[in-house]
Write a protein that binds this DNA or RNA. Structure first.
Lengths: 347, 347
DNA sequence: TTGTAAGCGTTATCAT
DNA sequence: ATGATAACGCTTACAA
């Protein structure tokens, strides 16, 4: 069907070794033969069979990407980042889509069934000779699905691995919250109500810390009554406002865009306009936040950067072998998405 | 590092041929030896090296997926569908993300640069021994990037290939428009204004046809003044209303959800409430449509089905070789997403 | 500078 | 029922 190196060799009257050397610019080759061989290669559109090459070299320049669920909003950007990095370094991607949300609803990470599945997929990838694996989680959490003692490096994106040899690439959530609080502060808002996420969430915790740090830096007293907990839903954002507004904050920091939408709802119901009577900011930079009225100022998750960094990390581990000292955890900074839901407060 | 078939063979005192036979249930093998060998395989967690296997069998049970841009909203679902089908049939996926939007803005498909790129990527995939290729476009159009005379089958998802040997899996756009118009008709709306997309768009054309067919079936006169062209933007949906409302339609069919958002805007500006004073429906089922107020009734693109069908098609071509007669074009039906923006009209 | 040949881990053919 | 052995297409000592 397609050509082999042997055919090229006989076509040009040289040995396969020479052809191989020419293809990979190795060894000493005469200018004339090189030219002759390259010409034939070009004319016949010859491409080395990489399967044979991989078998011989025991490397595939490919990395396995295991995505917990393709359809969760964080995935495309993360994978885009991974592919960008891999493209730059000439690595291929073998994609595995676990489809966890579809299969086990959203409690999958509590079941054991899926651990077995991950283990099996990793084995399969290893048998395909991938050089390394990136596991991409659908949401941040402590994630211990990666089996121990794997013969190839693994990095975890968007979750915390609980082991040092598996580096974690995660969002600098505290930094993000600090950044947006700083922003509010810079607009002279000092009484900032916060609608937090679920109490047990890792995000809620770090974002709260970030909020507090910003206040601290500006020597503003932290008032616990100014924070109300929601459950990430729009409705809960709406409902939280009832209590929150009793303290008459001039700005609201909702810990995700969806709840910020609920804040908009409440405000409009009460004849107030967001970004004018009360400043409101969200978190995540979900698509709809740009379509809200007014467009929501929020903090953008560094999704693509996480993917890119994950790629860098694994390729780093690969290219320098043991000498490469992987960070066990990398926090990637968020960016501020300034839109129109915040005004300058003049007390 | 990891085990080979040879080691298993010597460990059990049989030949590699027998081990291979056992692994693939081929040939005659004694019950006892089989048991013995399988035990050793299990104990040592042996997994055959698939690179070696692929080299030998000249097949990889993997298909290359070339995505024009991972971050376009249609991609995740389409790829999810592909992966689902591939998983069921035990195929692996090699993902290539062209990142076309990122690289060449949104006019990439007019340049030639990207055709070369596609060609190169296809060659690379072929050299990796993929059995087939699915090309996933970021938006529907006539797409002729696939080179001729490829040694493996290709299918095009979400675009029309211009050649018979490359089957196209596309949205049944006409059917979708017909379906939603039928729905409006069933709610007794007969004067249905439409905000079309750009005039030259393939979507605009087919959706208009669907609209007309539904009217025809109900013997309702098609009034060209009832259709105004927008450019898919929210603003254009808003602006179109100015003229459209002069004809006092009881329902508006916007050809995408974004423009339907513009319709909402216009209505609210004029103290009318969508779904109460005027029915409005969109198209695409973008995420935000569920968050509009009231939630927008729209037609859902069969994205995941397109991916799944593309998988089926390529696997069909693969498994039955030449005997498989591929359809050159498959139209996948949309589904109606009934929400709250339509009311029963009582003239 | 170029060629010979071994070997990567499988499968498959043909003996035994 | 099992075993030798030749491929698959490449890279890489080592020899010439």
């Amino acid at each position: 069907m397609t050509m082999t190196i042997k055919e090229i060799a006989s076509l040009t009257g040289v040995s396969v070794a020479t052809v191989s050397n020419i293809i990979n610019n190795k060894g000493r080759v005469g200018e004339d033969t090189r030219a002759r061989v390259e010409k034939v290669i070009r004319e016949h559109h010859y491409r080395p069979n990489s399967v044979a090459k991989n078998l011989k070299t025991k490397t595939s320049r490919s990395i396995g990407v295991i995505a917990e669920d393709m359809t969760v909003f964080v995935m495309p950007e993360i994978i885009d980042g991974i592919t960008e990095c891999c493209e730059e370094n000439d690595y291929q991607i073998l994609l595995v889509n676990l489809r966890l949300y579809k299969k086990y609803s959203d409690t999958y990470y509590k079941t054991n069934h899926h651990r077995e599945r991950v283990k099996a997929e990793i084995q399969k990838l290893i048998s395909m000779q991938v050089d390394g694996i990136i596991y991409v989680a659908a949401h941040e959490r402590v994630n211990d699905v990666i089996p121990k003692n794997l013969p190839i490096p693994v990095v975890m994106a968007y979750s915390f691995s609980n082991r040092g040899e598996v580096p974690s690439i995660v969002v600098n959530d505290q930094g993000g919250a600090e950044k947006i609080t700083e922003y509010l502060l810079s607009k002279k808002h000092e009484k900032i109500g916060v609608i937090a996420g679920k109490k047990e969430s890792i995000h809620t915790l770090s974002r709260l810390e970030g909020y507090q740090r910003a206040l601290l830096r500006h020597q503003i007293f932290y008032d616990p009554d100014l924070v109300v907990y929601g459950d990430w839903d729009r409705q809960s954002g709406h409902d939280a406002m009832e209590n929150l507004m009793k303290k008459s904050p001039t700005a609201i920091f909702a810990m995700n865009d969806v709840m910020a939408g609920g804040v908009y709802d409440w405000l409009k119901e009460h004849e107030m306009t967001p970004g004018k009577d009360v400043a409101v900011v969200g978190y995540d930079d979900q698509v709809m936040s740009a379509y809200e009225n007014p467009p929501l100022t929020t903090v953008g998750l560094p999704l693509r950067d996480i993917g890119y960094k994950a790629g860098e990390e694994i390729i780093g581990m690969l290219s320098s072998g043991d000498t490469y000292k992987a960070e066990s955890r990398i926090d990637v900074d968020c960016r501020l998405c300034e839109r129109e839901s915040v005004f300058d407060y003049r007390g």
